[in-house]
Design a protein around this nucleic acid. Structure first.
Length: 574
RNA sequence: UCCGAGGUCGUCUAAUGGUAGGACACGACGCUUUGAACGUUGGAAUGGUGGUUCGAACCCAUCCCUCGGAACCA
């Protein structure tokens, strides 16, 4: 079940509250098409939380375009670049790559900065209409005048400047006659409003900073609350979807639109709707914490496979389809929630089960000598790439000879009764090969098991042993033919379900020391010598792996994407 | 404390006045040359209290709890 990049195969999903709203809008004739947008600020890397928003916004356009062909239904990618101090083209490139990789294509690439001239014009209109004024209070004074959540604020002494004076000051702000922080443009809201966002919110601030798109054309920049609704309205956005923390901003969003719509003749009257952002346990999602992990060298960069960044998940080996399926499975709602990492892991297993050919790799090798097998004989055994329940064809030959490696975990000296693998005197099936019985255990001087001696039953190739039942099947590789490899075993970033809530770096203490475990003495079946970077496999009984970019000829490097479910290990954890 | 938004199985999410359902997770069983996958199956929820109604997760009242809001960030 592959899907093309332009038509993601997201599972059939039920309606969410956003789709309910859109359906009603369509039914009531408020809109004849739907236009959404994904509006990242180009100041960092995208993570799986953004993927939820991407799937929602682009998914809406895909869904409704299907229902309303030729309507102009679409989704824009818009960079919300109103703070030149933080933003960079570098981030824009990464964001575009991530959106594309997830399987979506935007119908138009925009920048909030495309509209700076319009925004300026609208600001002058607001001033002329007596709705905005230039305030010359300092940063600290503005804060003080604003009051608190329980106490009303008080009016700025500059609130009653004349239209002429405001216009003059604002034009001189644009010309660069003032220093940063000297003046700001504010909306005339209500200093007693219970919504702090309405207490004469700032619309423009002075920033003598080069902007990555507009260069040095501007030295005043609009604030989010002013730029966002205008950008939406100019682009004809019908449903402006954002996360819950913007609920208090909606009143201001509407204020901006309402005070400008007649003058500006916007093509749409956008409405803002808020949904709950994605939270995942056992990891961190905030920009700040992600940045701290990267800058503090707690991980190896933005694409470290331990990170929930899109780049990290990509390198880890997650498929875009699995991430889309995950986003569909968590739904869209308004209740704050934290999704279990197991849900994400299920989605990638579920996808890879159909896509990843099965091969054999021994992570922690234990040598086995098959005593009754001829010294120099090598058999090429047929091994299917796919299990019986995956409808795909294909196989390769795996060499079998007298000396092989098996997994250390697949031998126990003194096993519990329900242990199906190797133990002294016990017989197991070697996957795609013979059944062998352990006859002797070789130990070094410290008592550590360094080698197993076994005998094989020549009548068990492709046939069940006679008169007895062999329950266990283990994987193996030929010692003589094995390919050496480095395996990077990844696990959850944090040991704790939820990182400490503190504002400081306390969460660093929760980092799982085993989130990355590097194994350098691994033995792979020879077919893996030709694996290409990005190829995914299931290493039977171990998990799904992907060939990493660090692979060199003669030294393959694989990342573990996710383990297989292991009900035996789970049952014996205690 | 004020304003805003929320509260349904362990987790995520449906049901919008008419059988509280699905997925993940967990357990049991079956199948198995992957202790995988798959199949069957089990346990498991409407924050509390009143009220309206033949009937309430849903409507009303009240209380409790959680999250967000006082950046010249988004």
């Amino acid at each position: 079940m592959n899907s093309s990049a332009s038509a993601p195969a997201t599972p059939a999903k039920q309606n969410d509250f956003i789709r309910d709203i859109i359906d009603e809008d369509l039914k009531a004739g408020r809109h004849s098409k739907v236009i959404t947008r994904f509006p990242p600020e180009p100041n960092g890397f995208l993570h799986i939380g953004h993927a939820k928003s991407i799937c929602l916004n682009f998914g809406l356009a895909l869904d409704y375009r299907e229902r309303l062909p030729e309507s102009g239904t679409r989704c824009h990618l818009r960079f919300d670049d109103t703070d030149p101090a933080k933003e960079d083209t570098l981030f824009e490139d990464g964001i575009q790559e991530d959106v594309r990789w997830l399987g979506f294509q935007w119908d138009g690439l925009y920048h909030a900065s495309d509209y700076f001239e319009k925004m300026y014009e609208y600001a002058e209109h607001l001033i002329t209409a007596g709705k905005a004024y230039v305030c010359s209070l300092t940063d600290a004074e503005i804060k003080q005048y604003r009051g608190t959540v329980t106490n009303p604020g008080q009016a700025s002494p500059y609130r009653d400047r004349s239209v002429e004076e405001n216009l003059d000051l604002f034009r001189r702000m644009r010309k660069g006659e003032f220093k940063d922080g000297e003046h700001v443009l504010r909306a005339k809201g209500d200093m007693a409003s219970a919504n702090m966002k309405m207490r004469d919110p700032l619309l423009y601030r002075i920033r003598h900073t080069e902007h990555h798109m507009t260069g040095d054309k501007w030295c005043i920049y609009p604030m989010y609350d002013y730029a966002h609704p205008i950008s939406d309205a100019i682009e004809g956005i019908t449903h402006s979807i954002c996360t819950l923390e913007f609920e208090n901003n909606r009143e201001l969003y509407d204020w901006v639109i309402d005070n400008l719509i007649e003058y500006a003749k916007f093509p749409s009257r956008p409405r803002q709707y808020e949904f709950a952002r994605l939270n995942l346990n056992y990891t961190v999602m905030s920009k700040r914490r992600l940045l701290e992990l990267v800058q503090g060298n707690h991980v190896r960069g933005w694409d470290d496979p331990r990170l929930p960044t899109i780049a990290g998940l990509r390198r880890r080996g997650y498929t875009p389809e699995s991430i889309r399926a995950f986003c569909a499975s968590v739904g869209v709602a308004k209740a704050n929630s934290t999704v279990d990492m197991a849900q994400l892991e299920f989605c990638v297993r579920d996808d890879l089960n159909q896509k990843a050919p099965r091969v054999m790799a021994v992570l922690n090798p234990l040598k086995v000598v098959i005593e009754n097998y001829p010294d120099d004989k090598v058999e090429e055994l047929e091994a299917a790439y796919w299990p019986h329940d995956v409808p795909k064809e294909g196989s390769r030959k795996v060499p079998f000879c007298k000396e092989i490696y098996v997994e250390q975990d697949d031998f126990m000296q003194d096993p519990p009764k329900d242990y199906y693998r190797l133990a002294p005197g016990k017989e197991v099936r070697l996957r795609y090969s013979y059944c062998v019985t352990c006859t002797d255990v070789v130990k070094d001087e410290t008592g550590e098991v360094i080698e197993l001696r076994c005998t094989y039953d020549p009548k068990t190739l492709g046939a069940n042993p006679e008169g007895r039942k062999v329950k266990g099947t283990i994987h193996w590789v030929s010692a003589k033919h094995a390919v050496d490899a480095e395996l990077r075993l990844y696990d959850r970033l944090l040991s704790d379900e939820a990182p400490p809530a503190g504002k400081d770096s306390e969460f660093l203490n929760a980092i799982n020391p085993n989130a990355l475990q590097v194994l350098t003495a691994c033995k792979l079946e020879p077919s893996l010598a030709s694996a290409q970077v990005g190829d995914r496999f299931q290493f039977e009984r171990q998990g799904y792996f992907i060939a990493d970019i660090d692979s060199k000829p003669g030294n393959q490097v694989f990342n573990r994407i996710v383990t297989l479910k292991d009900s035996w290990a789970r049952a014996h954890k205690k």
